[in-house]
Design a protein around this nucleic acid. Sequence first.
DNA 1: CTATTATCGGAACGATGACTCCACTTACAC
DNA 2: GTGTAAGTGGAGTCATCGTTCCGATAATAG
Lengths: 187, 187
Amino acid sequence: MSPGERALRADAQRNREKVLRAAREAFAAGGYGVPLDEIAALAGVGPGTVYRHFPSKEALFEAVVGARVSDLIDDARERAAAADPGAAFFGFLGRMGAEAAAKRDLPDAISVDGAVQEALREAFGVLLRRAQQAGAVRPDVTVPDLIVLLKGLMGSLKEVPPGPAGAAQRDRVVAVVMDGLRQPAAP
Amino acid sequence: MSPGERALRADAQRNREKVLRAAREAFAAGGYGVPLDEIAALAGVGPGTVYRHFPSKEALFEAVVGARVSDLIDDARERAAAADPGAAFFGFLGRMGAEAAAKRDLPDAISVDGAVQEALREAFGVLLRRAQQAGAVRPDVTVPDLIVLLKGLMGSLKEVPPGPAGAAQRDRVVAVVMDGLRQPAAP
DNA sequence: CTATTATCGGAACGATGACTCCACTTACAC
DNA sequence: GTGTAAGTGGAGTCATCGTTCCGATAATAG
């Protein structure tokens, strides 16, 4: 524990975790838009309790989504160490697509600017640069381009219905974007 | 005039057009999200007056955006009649991208389902089928795929800053998606 | 000019949702 | 056990927005 902060009371600790669990679930299912009162109800606490632990809804969102994005970034670093830069880049993109299909909060997470987005941007930078140097990705795209592309792609992926038909459609749409990112053959 | 509807009073007619002009401007600048009161203020009328002419905000939006989409559809039909199906398809896509960059209401218009979306879907269907038969577009994509792709693309294009840097970024992003839609060389 | 009635403006309503306040409860130190 | 301060919950506040209501206004017919 840091010396500046006294330890949390046992029940407070428990509630904090109930809130985080509920928020994780609710944000994943409905994105940033879910009402905070709903999260509180799902956690079995009052809204006031949520605010005792997080100063704002946005802070709660960042706390929830920060963990998920950290995982993604670890994944990106791992892939970056692998042999084939092209496979690393596109593999990571595929992971993001799959993630976005399952959890509705990821697109909103990318849109919020803050430490989260900065970290993701950097992780993408490494992957992209290496893939471009290896000739696997067209050289003109930049990291901001990728962010724009992903924001849009993941935003609309949110609305593809679940089930096998939806999954097939998702795969096609992701494939289109990926192919567009590859080095184009000279016309 | 239809026999069932008596003629509008002169001032009412004038106000109706003021509202439409203001709505066109406001929706284009801010998308569907702009408050109706703001539109009314911009038109120089009260909110009540807006509701005298349109039963709901959504109806007003459809009235405004219907005209724009009609233009797009005419364009699509024209292009469909041209010689080169591939050029027709990608030219239309480019037009939509340019349109979306300038007017923020187009992405919202695609998202609203109704007659507008149906018409656009059909126009796209013709263009897409011909381009696929000509081998200019990969054969696996469907019209719903295109809609998803465009929704996302236009949605994030909304947030690209204006100015030459933004325009260049827009062009790159659109180029990526277009290239992804082309017939891929056999691996 | 006057009566009629469509139209107008904007205050008011109802819903929603983030956030605050405070009387009550309860964990923990002693 | 008891005192006390941390913690709680949920009613209440404030702001936003779509929508409705109605007394005032003014266009039009006769």
